[in-house]
């Protein structure tokens, strides 16, 4: 299998996994789920670091470093704010007990 085709296979299979895992989510969790998924795409940080590492001109380096900052905000901020939301759900469950 060529490399391009291997990557395409990964893509297609991931589409199905993505559809499947959230198929039955209640409205209560829509907001946290969106926020959590938002944090996950902050993984673009990995790409930003990779291109920054291998930048071959100053322009490339500057753009890549900006991307690192933006991606970090996305990833770290995203996980923190999702955790804050979900923390409240947990408190609620204690009350029920």
């Amino acid at each position: 299998m060529s490399n391009g085709l291997a990557l395409l296979s990964i893509f297609v299979l991931s589409v199905f996994v993505g559809f499947e895992v959230v198929a039955k989510v209640s409205t209560t969790l829509h907001t946290p789920l969106m926020s959590g998924a938002n944090a996950i795409h902050g993984i673009i940080l990995v790409g930003a670091i990779a291109v920054a590492n291998n930048a071959s001109s100053n322009l490339q380096l500057i753009l890549a470093i900006v991307a690192v900052v933006l991606a970090t905000i996305n990833m770290v901020g995203g996980f923190v704010v999702t955790d804050r939301m979900l923390e409240m759900f947990k408190g609620k469950k204690k009350e029920v007990k």
């Binding site: 490399n3 990964i10 589409v15 993505g18 829509h30 993984i43």
Partner: peptide, 19 residues
């Protein structure tokens, strides 16, 4: 050519569409 980005990005793209 980063598999992790493809998997993570596609998961969010697909689940985000459903959501």
């Amino acid at each position: 050519q980063a598999t992790l980005l493809i998997v993570a990005g596609t998961l969010v793209g697909a689940s985000g569409t459903i959501l």
